[in-house]
Amino acid sequence: MRIGYTLMTEQAGPKALVRYAAAAERAGFDFEVSSDHYSPWLDEQGHAPYAWSVLGAVTQRTDRVELMTYVTCPTVRYNPVVVAQKAATLQLLSDNRFTLGLGSGENLNEHVVGTGWPPANTRHAMLTEAIDIISGLFDGGYFNYSGRHFQVDSAKLWDLPEIRTPIGVAVSGKQSVEKFALTADAMIAVEPDADLVSRWDAQRHDTGSRKVGQLPICWDADRDVAVKRAHDQFRWFGSGWKVNAELPGTAGFAGATQFVTEDDVAGGIPCGPDLEPIVESVRNFADAGFTDLALVQIGGDHQDGFLEFAQSDLLPALRDAFPDGAR
């Protein structure tokens, strides 16, 4: 497994995120992923800068780490032709270090343009068309498309990288795996689900593709402080994406999580200074067959200490635990 760092646009402003990105590279992380939201899940998180501007700046402050959106919805708030243009530009700016991570989106971010929030089957159909469009534009030349949800009229990417931008797609079950395993270069998921990995590999008849997961942790020298912070900012996480995708705003997430306790959160998220709970949580993803795992340090003002801890203790421990990964 390769170990990555998450740029959480919901919990820090743009300048801080760029600084954290550079520090994470120095600390030794293999890659960095960025969320792409118009709104945080909870008011307590307090941020939502434009991810693509942040990533553009990050390309100029880093040299080695791979970069990825985790994930972009290319169907409602963004048109897929514009997503293709943004991705190609980032691939050029980063000297071929960028992967375009895509997903079917969340009501939280997409309702803001006033076109409504379609049901899950429609969202999957829209994402399928969007991937076809983005892939077609990545092929180069003028591109036309006539679909049920999208029309493209003589579009062309005028600045294409020499190395084609890889596409990752977020999946959550059998239906999404069957739809996207053959059209994407990488699988993206947020739970250590071995069944997802095996279905993905079986659909592709190939075990060599990337499977990228994500793990929230809340490191702090004081475990009680860490648990309180994780509850304050990440109590929404345990609801699952099938619920989270439907809620329209921070008030909805606050209401849906009003009875979540600190113990509930601590039971699902490693909190505090100890290495062992983090290593064991990482192991769950490794055992499930994931090749890459991006860590989320909860708390926008608590990144510097975590990055020092990662460089001195966490990443060496993960290299020892997983000698074939975490380079």
Rank of each mutant, 00 (worst) to 15 (best):
E25L: 00
Y78S: 06
E308A: 15
A194M: 04
K156Y: 05
W158I: 06
D313E: 15
M187L: 15
T261C: 13
A230H: 01
D222Y: 07
A51T: 13
L100V: 10
T261I: 10
R164E: 00
Q214M: 13
R229F: 05
N244W: 09
L108A: 01
N96E: 15
N284Y: 07
G300D: 10
H231D: 08
Q85Y: 11
Q303H: 15
G252I: 07
M68W: 02
I278N: 07
V33R: 00
D263L: 00
A22L: 07
S172V: 01
L315G: 08
W52L: 15
A181R: 01
L7Y: 01
D301I: 06
S312H: 14
W117P: 08
P277R: 03
A16M: 10
Q151H: 11
A221I: 04
D232K: 13
G101H: 08
Q233K: 14
R210M: 09
I188T: 05
S135I: 07
P74Q: 09
Q297I: 10
L315Q: 04
N144M: 02
D43T: 14
S135F: 05
A254C: 05
C218F: 09
D222H: 11
G147N: 08
M8F: 12
L7D: 01
Q303D: 12
R97I: 10
L315P: 07
L295P: 00
G168A: 09
W236D: 07
P277E: 03
A84I: 08
P80L: 09
L137N: 03
L182D: 15
A202Y: 06
I133Q: 02
